[in-house]
Amino acid sequence: MIHLLGPAVLAAALAGIGVYGILARRNAVLVLIGAELLLNAANVLLVTASALPAGGLAGLEHSQTYHDPLIPGQVMTIFVITVAAAEIGLGLAIVLLLFRARGTVELTAVRELGEASPRHTETPS
């Protein structure tokens, strides 16, 4: 018998840390690290949920032993990890492209969307 509160609070903490990492970092690779942490927060929650019997919290009262044969929590986690692998692969490819184009991976140098950019023009030339 284990308390589920611990992994749940861990998931919340990782989510907060991930959000901070995404928002507070200037280096594109470090932003991707924040995104990985956010994804892992979701994974922790999924695995924690898979420890519950079928039906989740509502199923507790009926049975402690019945399991969902599809094991959705853990299978979903594996899927998320797969998607994360794809995401990081593509994301790092973009970062590399950015580095080769600009010579930097600092996101503050990429401001074409904003008006503050010195290269901003109202009409693209």
């Binding site: 284990i2 589920l4 609070v9 903490a13 907060g16 840390i17 901070y20 507790l60």
Partner: peptide, 21 residues
Amino acid sequence: GISVGGILAGTLIYALQDLTV
């Protein structure tokens, strides 16, 4: 970050309490 973590933690603590499995 604190808001997201706080909201999630609050929700989960409220939902799970001292549940053991």
